[in-house]
Simulated assay, not measured.
Amino acid sequence: MTQKTELEILLAVVDHGSFSAAARVLGYTPSAVGKRVHQLEQRLRVPLLVRTTRRMTLTEAGQRYVEEARDLLARLTALEEDIADDAASLRGTIRLTSSAALGRLHVVPPVIEFMERHPVVEIDLLLTDKIVDLVGEGFDLAVRSGTLPDSSLVSRKLMSNRRVPCGAPAYLDQHGLPQQPEELTTHSCLHLGQEKRLLDWGFTRNQGGITRLGSGFSCNSLEALHAACCAGHGIAWLPEFLIAHDLHKGRLVPVLIDHADPNAGGGIFVLRPKATFLPRRVRALTDFLADHFTDIRTD
């Protein structure tokens, strides 16, 4: 058995709680698993596990060794996959996540095309508006929009995330076209989550103070706000990637453009955990997504 196998055995014991459970997963006998862990402890000259009749726990040295071993094993596996990829077509699984609206419109289409070009690559895509812990949940990539927070993740900007205050012609015909941001206090405003102030929509006031947006429909889904806006229920601040076609067809009309900060929406990024070795399939999909977003860039 190699040192890599020793690491895999030890991690299986820790993850599954016993020699017998690890043996079932790995296809070894419990005695073979116990022997390899014992040999590892002898080689390190320190106990890694404390065994009782009821449970098995890590020693302080074992805890440190397991934390480092996970990282080393992941890097070794990625290196082996990368070398194998260089000699063959792209293969393997990529776990990817994106917000729902952005993903449906601009991540799913290039992912499908990427799989058609690389038929032995499997994509596991999660569309959710929740922020996913990429490292903790084992994801390779995330496509996210907004202002990028300080993070240990590696980021690559795909395009700006320009957001546009807009309303349906029927709503604006009935309630009037606002000429100043302060006039939004008298309009039905469609809020994403906690958006309540002009500042939340990228408007600033020269005279100080914070003016609240008018009350209206509030939802945590951009697609739901988009539908309500198109149906004439009020004014919303929506990303251009979602409404570009509606603006072009006249189903939505931009308002207060001269007063809106074009940078308030942040950007659209592809993010990944830091890794010493990045599988070629992950690099290839990242580049493919970047090319797609370049094609739809409107700024």
Rank of each mutant, 00 (worst) to 15 (best):
G265Q: 03
C230Q: 14
F241D: 03
L289F: 01
G216Q: 01
R251C: 07
A284M: 06
R251P: 04
Q207E: 13
L289C: 05
H248M: 12
T286Q: 11
I257N: 14
E223Q: 13
D261W: 02
R283E: 13
V253H: 11
T276H: 13
G266S: 03
L198D: 05
S218K: 09
I257Y: 08
G234R: 08
W237T: 10
G209Q: 04
G214R: 08
L199P: 08
R272H: 08
L271M: 09
G265T: 05
A284S: 10
E223C: 09
N220M: 10
C229N: 09
V282Y: 03
K274L: 10
A244G: 11
G208E: 06
I268R: 07
A227Q: 13
T286V: 04
D246L: 09
F217I: 10
H226K: 13
G266W: 01
D200G: 06
G266E: 02
V253R: 13
F241C: 01
F269I: 06
I210T: 15
G208L: 02
E223N: 11
F277N: 15
R212S: 15
A264D: 11
C229P: 09
G216M: 02
L199S: 14
F277G: 05
K274T: 11
S221I: 02
L252Y: 02
G232F: 05
A227Y: 09
G216Y: 00
T204S: 12
H248T: 11
D261V: 00
P239W: 05
L199M: 11
L198P: 07
G209V: 06
W201F: 06
C219H: 15
D291K: 11
T276V: 15
A228P: 01
C229E: 06
K274N: 12
I235K: 03
C219Y: 09
T286N: 05
L271C: 08
C229I: 04
P239C: 05
T204R: 12
T286E: 12
V270L: 07
P254G: 01
R251V: 07
V270W: 00
G209R: 08
L238N: 00
G202R: 04
L238Q: 01
F241V: 10
G202E: 02
L222W: 08
H259G: 00
P239E: 03
A228K: 12
G265W: 00
H226A: 08
L199C: 11
D200A: 06
S221W: 09
V255P: 06
H233C: 10
N220I: 11
F269M: 10
I243C: 01
S221N: 05
G208S: 10
L271A: 05
A224L: 12
K274G: 14
T276Y: 11
D291M: 08
K249V: 10
I243A: 00
L252H: 02
E240R: 15
G216I: 00
G214E: 06
T286A: 10
S215D: 15
D246M: 03
H248A: 13
R212L: 15
K249H: 15
S218A: 12
S218Y: 06
G266F: 05
A244E: 10
R281C: 03
P273N: 05
F269S: 09
D261P: 01
A290P: 02
Q207V: 15
P254T: 01
L271G: 02
H248P: 06
T276G: 14
A264V: 03
I243W: 00
H248K: 14
P279Y: 04
D261F: 01
A284W: 04
